[in-house]
Amino acid sequence: KTTPEIDMDLTDLAKRLGATTLFSRLPREQLLALLAQSPRRQAAAGSVLSDTAHGLKNHLVLLSGELEAQRTWTEADGSQNTFAWPVAVRADGPGFALLSAAGSHIRVQALTDSDYLSIDGDALDELLGWSELDGNATLARNLKVFHKVPIENVQQAFARMVERPVVAGETIVTQDEPGDSYFIILSGEAEVWVTDPMTDETAMVAVLSDSDAFGEEALLLGGSRSATVRMHTPGRLLVLSKSDFDELLKPNMVEEVNAEQARALLSEGRVKLIDCRYDMEFEESRIPGAQWVPLSTIRQHGVFKIDPEATYIVYCRSGRRSNAAAFLLRERGIRALSLTGGIKDWPYEVDNSAL
């Protein structure tokens, strides 16, 4: 059974656990958060906490009582062998005993009434992976774009980034010029300016600051910059080349579905639909049920119109703009997929009625 509240000093436990090899790489605040979300459980004497069929997938922090862990394996001749060892909280010890998640073929049984915390092994692995980024760990965690990227890719991306000092008033990218880099702001503020091609009017549409990123749209679309980004203050940027972006980030951030897959997901009610084209395109024709959130507004304020808990399929005319839109949404922590071929290759019903 699960105890509703943890009636123990987590700060003290985090301090003591932080001295162990397993948890020593985690910052104290992360370890505290991990412990706070780890359920505290009680096991009666004789009860089985894990069996050999399912194994031990979570780390157990024994707070009181005594357990027996048992590992079973197969020898070269096919015979079965077993090794058992006790896990107990000693009166002269640190006040806990740690049994780390060891995977399959582990059986754990309570020898006495016991009290323990169950720490998600996958969650700890992820935190430990981020910790390997050293000085870039906090920055990488703040950038949601990296949360779907394998840790090894994130490590390589940061290793290949070049730090660039910038001054107030410096133009970093210019609208309509080819895109060749992806930028992360380490410090400072930048203004995003867009010139309307119809009216030739220029307006500031966003302000970017520490840990914000820009430059991905042109790389994903394979075209020119959609805005001018100019530094408002001095600062520092990290710059990743297009070739490194394409190799390390793009494949993991733009997930595509074809029309048949999209229709099935929509019919099952598992996803919502976003049309990221221009207003005149949307008014002319659209896939039924689509919400209009143009690509140009997603970076600015369009994301606030979107349910952050839902999964979206994004489409445009051909699939190029929706790739960029899906990437931007994922940067903001929203699960999004791009429709391959866009509305151009959509073989099902299309709404042509005037809005």
Rank of each mutant, 00 (worst) to 15 (best):
Q80K: 15
E132Y: 06
I184E: 01
L266Y: 03
L208C: 05
Q155L: 08
F245T: 09
S267P: 00
Q291T: 14
I306V: 14
K57Q: 12
T199A: 05
R230P: 12
L237V: 11
R230E: 14
Q30K: 06
L208T: 03
M231K: 06
T3G: 00
M253V: 01
D120E: 09
D125T: 08
A354P: 00
V271H: 05
S187R: 01
L238N: 01
N136K: 14
P308D: 07
A44M: 10
E66L: 11
R236L: 07
E309A: 12
T233G: 02
T3H: 03
D51K: 03
G235Y: 01
D134N: 12
L238K: 08
T2C: 00
L339Y: 09
V154Q: 11
Q30M: 02
P27D: 06
A213V: 15
L249R: 05
L273D: 07
D92E: 15
W292H: 15
D212W: 02
P94R: 08
W130S: 03
L221I: 07
N81A: 12
A36V: 01
R90L: 08
S104Y: 02
E75Q: 08
T74S: 05
I6L: 11
F83R: 10
A159M: 07
G93Y: 04
L67A: 09
Y116T: 07
E189D: 02
S47P: 08
E170H: 04
T52A: 15
R90C: 00
V173N: 13
M280K: 00
T20Q: 10
A326W: 02
S79T: 15
L34Y: 04
V257A: 10
D244W: 00
G179R: 10
N136P: 01
Q42N: 11
L127E: 07
S187E: 06
N258E: 03
G188H: 13
G46M: 04
K148I: 00
F158L: 08
R236S: 03
Q70S: 15
P234R: 14
D12K: 15
A44F: 04
L60D: 03
G93E: 06
W130T: 03
N81Q: 14
Y182G: 01
S338L: 14
T20M: 05
L221S: 14
